[in-house]
Simulated scan of single mutants.
Amino acid sequence: MSEAFPRHVLCFLGSGLDLSEMERIAKGFGGFVLDREYSEAEPDPRMPDAFEASMAAASFDEDDWDAVESHDTVGYLLSAPMMRELAFDTSRRLLAVTAALLRSGATAVKNESNGLAHGRDRWLALADAAADEAADATDEDLADALVTAWVKRPIYNGQVLYSCGMHLLGAPEVEIEVGGEPPAGGELLDLVAHLDALAVYLLTDPRAQEIEDGAGFRMSEDAPRWLLRTGACTRYDEDDLFFNPYGYVRLTPAG
């Protein structure tokens, strides 16, 4: 197990965004600070390409793209490096911070620690779903909202679909073997559903703390059986924001 501690680095854009006010709001949620070295009251011409590379198109509308194009201020918000047992709650609180800042002048947000961005409406909906006031939400509902908010998926490398961002929730990345042909259509949706089910399982089921190679996994009692394999994170160096010190759990076809 690596001794690296994951941390969130969030990039906020705005037009006339008050960085001092942004810092004040974030501090009210505890444990989040403005990176004064890289935050600046001037536009960054790299942002349109950076947001496009962060899967923004999945939830961006025209207003979101206009906000990126017209920004004149960039603020970077940092969490403290997160011990594993604090990561889930820290990420829940940071989602509330994100919503508060979007309602107070920020216009676009992406996460440098997983390469993921959402449109304004998606961020706010996810924050509402994860809020303390969502009394009817189950543990699985909360986990699903946080996975959607903070975990980039699916990423395809020619052999597996995998995630990036589970380290921000204190859990291994999730992967699923797909062979050599890029999945598409209904097959892709089914594989992503398996990834998401495994992610929620890792975050909510106590048995997930003791996964052994070769253990079985099913979406439901009558669904096809998969085998679980574990391994260390080798895609990124330990000093990379994407690095997951908890490794990965991979679904492989049984038989």
Results as ranks from 00 to 15, higher is better:
E3P: 01
L188K: 10
R7M: 12
A4W: 02
A197H: 14
N244T: 02
L10C: 13
D213G: 15
S220H: 14
L161F: 11
Y162L: 05
A145P: 09
L19I: 08
R24Q: 14
M166Q: 13
R207T: 12
L13M: 05
E187I: 13
G170T: 00
G16N: 11
D213V: 07
R235H: 12
V178E: 04
E52C: 04
L124D: 00
L13C: 12
S39M: 01
L241R: 10
A56C: 11
K27D: 14
M1D: 13
E173T: 01
A184V: 10
A143H: 07
F60L: 07
Q209M: 13
F51L: 04
L19W: 06
A117G: 08
R250L: 11
P224Q: 11
P43K: 10
P48S: 05
A100Y: 08
A100N: 03
D18Y: 05
L101Q: 06
V174M: 04
A131E: 11
M47I: 01
L189E: 15
H8R: 05
D44R: 12
A223R: 04
S15M: 10
Y156T: 04
H194E: 09
A100V: 03
L77W: 06
H71Y: 09
R84W: 00
Q159E: 14
D141Q: 09
E175C: 14
D63R: 13
H194V: 00
D141R: 05
R250Q: 14
E23C: 08
L161Y: 07
G158I: 01
G231W: 09
L142I: 14
Y76F: 15
G214T: 00
V192N: 06
L116V: 12
I25K: 03
D128G: 06
F60P: 00
E187S: 12
A129P: 05
V97W: 02
A193R: 15
Q159K: 12
L126P: 03
R92W: 04
L227G: 10
E62F: 06
E69M: 13
L142C: 06
A137E: 09
F217E: 01
A145R: 07
E173W: 07
V33M: 14
A99S: 15
L146C: 05
R229P: 00
R225P: 02
H8Q: 12
A149L: 10
A67R: 05
L161W: 08
L95H: 03
V249A: 06
P182D: 01
M219V: 12
Y248K: 06
D222A: 12
G165W: 04
F60Y: 15
G179A: 02
L126K: 03
G255N: 12
V9S: 12
L86N: 14
G14R: 07
W150C: 05
A57V: 09
A215K: 13
